[in-house]
């Protein structure tokens, strides 16, 4: 069977599934290495992971084109990779190096890469959604047909910025897609204390836009729903709200042991581990062989090693740089 053909009952070609698998593996291992570096004291700030969210971060951006705008959140490391960001650049950001995209001005995914059209988040939850509406507006005014994809958590979805953006984008029919990553906890607060309605996608009705709730660990569900939303946005039919139900398998950040999360809940969700899910699917459908699996694993680790080595050997920015660059020329 040719790699560029779709099997019966499959959404994507074998080649595409292998790409998705690679990116999800890479995301998982990248974040594991970030935690390791954090414990070694090599990461000066916080370390956040999206363990459990890989299918959402990777599958959603897989539905985008190069010219689309991406505004990722802190649990969407995979989205950076699919959009074309290099591991080296991401690692430089985490380690606060002078040759990072933010030149050490900010850490983690907090950078912009205009060539890849990636605009990282700030720490204020919801603050990027009005900006994503802005790039969607620019796209509409310039007749670019580019869509803007952004994310928010179950907790962050309550911030006023989210409402204002959806109110504006729905009326103007802006090409905006918002994924609410419902990962069950906002720091320590369970989702039951964040909302009174049944599903986050119910909120879409209030804006007169389509809303979907999907299993965020299922790569097919994520990709197909996002693809539909992207196509819709590109046709000029306006925004879509997608609730992706996942689990935050780690604490809020590396310092947080998350003792407040019931063990049973974690065990249940462990069975739906998105990386294992895609791996099982691909192995059982003979899209991925055991040899290929090993090869991909080795490739991922080698790439990571290179990025870590490169970042560690890269210098910090000169201290006096702190005073520069408040204004553009």
């Amino acid at each position: 069977m040719a790699k560029d053909q779709k099997r019966k009952n499959n959404l994507l070609t074998d080649e595409q599934y292998l790409q998705l698998y690679y990116f999800m593996k890479l995301t998982r291992e990248y974040e594991e290495s970030i935690l390791k570096l954090y414990r070694q004291g090599k990461i000066v700030g916080g370390a956040y992971t999206g363990n459990g969210n890989e299918a959402t971060a990777v599958g959603s951006v897989f539905a985008l084109e190069k010219h689309d705008y991406l505004f990722p959140m802190h649990r969407d490391m995979g989205s950076h990779l699919v959009k074309g960001q290099s591991l080296r650049n991401l690692m430089l950001q985490h380690l606060g190096r002078g040759n990072s995209l933010s030149k050490g001005r900010d850490g983690t995914g907090h950078y912009a890469d205009p060539l890849l059209r990636i605009y990282g988040n700030i720490s204020h939850l919801g603050a990027m959604i009005p900006m994503a509406a802005g790039t969607a507006l620019a796209s509409k005014l310039r007749k670019e047909k580019s869509v803007s994809l952004t994310f928010i958590g179950d907790g962050g979805s309550n911030v006023g910025d989210v409402h204002e953006s959806l109110a504006m984008a729905s009326v103007m029919k802006l090409p905006l897609i918002l994924i609410i990553e419902n990962n069950q906890f906002a720091y320590s607060t369970p989702v039951q204390k964040q909302k009174a309605m049944e599903k986050y996608s119910d909120r879409a009705q209030g804006y007169g836009i389509p809303g979907f709730t999907i299993d965020g660990t299922d790569i097919d569900a994520v990709y197909s729903t996002c693809k539909e939303a992207v196509d819709r946005a590109r046709r000029g039919e306006g925004p879509t709200l997608i609730e992706s139900v996942t689990m935050r398998m780690h604490g809020h950040s590396a310092h947080d042991g998350a003792e407040y999360v019931p063990k049973q809940l974690l065990e249940e969700w462990k069975k739906k581990d998105p990386v294992e899910r895609i791996e099982k699917k691909l192995l059982s459908e003979n899209i991925l062989s055991h040899t290929q699996k090993e090869e991909i694993g080795k490739k991922v680790m080698a790439e990571l090693e290179d990025a870590i080595q490169f970042a560690i050997e890269s210098p910090y920015p000169p201290a006096e740089d702190a005073a520069l660059g408040v204004y553009a020329e």
Partner: peptide
Amino acid sequence: TVLAETAIIGAATGAAVVGM
């Protein structure tokens, strides 16, 4: 626009960053 100052400023910021 809709009556939403955060959305106005945020949308202007987003559009400005991409060249408007």
